[in-house]
Structures are given as C-alpha cells and as structure tokens.
C-alpha cells in the first residue's frame, strides 16, 4: 500500500510540475511555429511572471486582507497583463527587425535578451531569493497508510494542486478554442504556413505575431503564478532552467504542436519527479535531457509533430 501511495504522491507532484512546463512550452512552440525562431528569452518572461505575481501578492497583502479567490484572480490577471507587455516589447524591440535575417542572428539576439532581462531583474530586485508565504493551504486526503518504518504516511491532493490542475485545463480549453475557432487563430495558422501569402491576403502579419508573443507571455505568467504558489520562492535565475526544460518539452511533444507542448510538459514533469523520487535526485536533469535526445533520435519531429517529408 505504501508503494501505491508513494507513487500517487509522485504522480500528483509530477502533474503539477508538468503544468508549469506545459504552459511555458506553449509560448516556445507558438513562436517557433509562426516565425521559426527559438525565443530563448521566453524563460525570462516566465521569471518576470513570477516576480510580478509576487509583487501583486505583496501589494494585496499590504492593502489588507482580500478574499483569497478574488486575490488569486487579481494576481492572475495582473501578472498576465504586465508580463504580456514584456512579451510584446521583446518582439517589437528585438525580434521584429530580424525576421528576414539568418536564424542564428535571431537566436543570438534572443540569448542576448535573455542575459539582459536576467540582469535587469537582478539589478532591480537583488540577487537574493524572494520567498512568498504559502497562500493556499489544506487539501483532501486521498490515501492514508503507513510507510516502512510504520509511521503514518498520508497522500493528499491539496487545494493548491487542484487549483493548478483546474486552472491549466481551463486555460488549455480556452486557448484551443482561441486557436481553432477565432479569426485570430486562423490568421495565426495562416502566418505559420506562409507569411508572405498571408500578408497578401490582408492579414496583418505584424499584429498576429505580436499577439502570439502576448499570448505566449500571458501563459508564461500563469505558469509563473503557479510556480510562486507551489514552490513559494523565486529569483532572477529561475527562468533559465525552467525555460530550458519547457523548450525541451516543446521539442519532445513536437515543436509547433500545441497539444504536443502540453503533453511534452506533462511528460517532462513526470520524468523529472519520478526519476528524482525513485532513482537519484541529483541526476534528474540528466535524465530529462537523455529522454529528449532519445526521442529526437528515434522520432525527430517529436511525439505529436507531423512527420516532415524531406522536400527535394
């Protein structure tokens, strides 16, 4: 029974972590789909999302007690808004002029932006870790058993984890509708296929790409909020590894595919948590990347990516 409980515990943790990776991965995959570049600074956008969430939480705390669900909603919206503006500016200032340039130039610019944003936040907010006290406590006990030493071992699904899972699912649904059913979604898919043709057909390509960055950044902000609630601390460097793993997730799921990004995120989260839980905590990142390399070798387009036939 203990084994089942432990497994369940890890599963819940893995899914929550996977939600964060998946939400960030969507930003990577969308940008890659539409302009074919790795937006290396997207991890930093996520990091900014964590900071904005923290600041708004603190502001609400200073303003006096706000009913918790309302507070979460306010933080969510504020984080999405302010982070989205960073995403928009990033594209407008750094990437727009490089669309026709060699891919390497765009990638270097993105790496430059990533370094810049990290240090920008470090200068403004200091290098120290910023903690946020737990906001949502309590949960529902799922399993109650005892571990090998005979101590009580309870697995519970906390309200926080429920919130994370529900929030992610809701966002995914909204987002899927947005992409498949609206004019914006159509414009976006048109730009993915052929930007020049889309422009000729009267689609405002610049605006579509800007919106892609805005959406990607707001989802990263949600991931940032979840990260703050779940792990309770942030610093200027959290974006790097999270971004890297989220990109890995996007590639794993098949870059350009939205369900793929979510699936990839979930898988990376599960692999990481289970490897750490069952084998070795230190080497969990090595395990993640090994899986990525294996997937790329045997299925170069990722799990849900369309196999691309080489056009000769």
């Amino acid at each position: 029974m203990y084994h089942v409980a432990y497994f369940l515990d890890q599963l819940i943790n893995g899914v929550t972590l996977g939600a964060i990776y998946g939400l960030v991965a969507i930003g990577y995959t969308m940008v890659y789909g539409i302009i074919g570049m790795i937006n290396f600074a997207h991890g930093e956008i996520f990091m900014i999302g964590t900071f904005v969430s923290l600041i708004v939480f603190l502001l609400l705390g200073l303003a006096g007690g706000v009913w918790l669900p309302l507070a979460i909603l306010i933080v969510l919206l504020a984080a999405m808004l302010f982070t989205a503006i960073y995403g928009w500016t990033l594209e407008r200032v750094a990437y727009r002029r490089l669309r026709a340039s060699p891919r390497l130039a765009a990638l270097i610019t993105a790496i430059g932006m990533s370094i810049f944003l990290q240090n920008y936040v470090q200068l403004l907010q200091g290098a120290r870790n910023k903690p946020l006290p737990p906001q949502i406590t309590g949960g529902v006990e799922v399993v109650n058993t005892s571990n090998r030493a005979g101590e009580a071992y309870a697995v519970s699904l906390s309200y926080l984890q429920m919130l994370i899972i529900v929030l992610t699912i809701v966002l995914m649904v909204v987002f899927t509708v947005l992409i498949t059913r609206t004019a914006l979604g159509r414009a976006q898919r048109a730009c993915e296929q052929d930007r020049g043709m889309a422009a000729l057909l009267g689609i405002n390509v610049d605006r579509t790409i800007s919106l892609t960055f805005v959406i990607g950044a707001s989802l990263a902000a949600v991931a940032g909020l979840i990260f703050m609630l779940r792990y309770g601390a942030t610093d200027f460097f959290v974006g790097f590894l999270t971004g890297l793993k989220a990109f890995t997730a996007a590639v794993l799921g098949g870059i350009g595919s939205l369900p793929g990004a979510m699936l990839g995120g979930l898988l990376i989260g599960l692999i990481e948590v289970f490897f750490a839980g069952y084998f070795n905590l230190e080497y969990k990142d090595v395990a993640t990347f090994t899986v990525l390399v294996l997937v790329l070798i045997f299925r170069p387009t990722g799990l849900l990516g369309k196999p691309d036939i080489e056009k000769v």
């Binding site: 130039a105 430059g112 810049f116």
Partner: peptide, 9 residues
C-alpha cells in the same frame, strides 16, 4: 546582453 542585441540588430 544589451550589446549582443544591438550589434545583431
């Protein structure tokens, strides 16, 4: 970081 961006632009 900033100069990387500027030179590339």
């Amino acid at each position: 970081g900033g100069s990387m961006v500027l030179i590339m632009l």
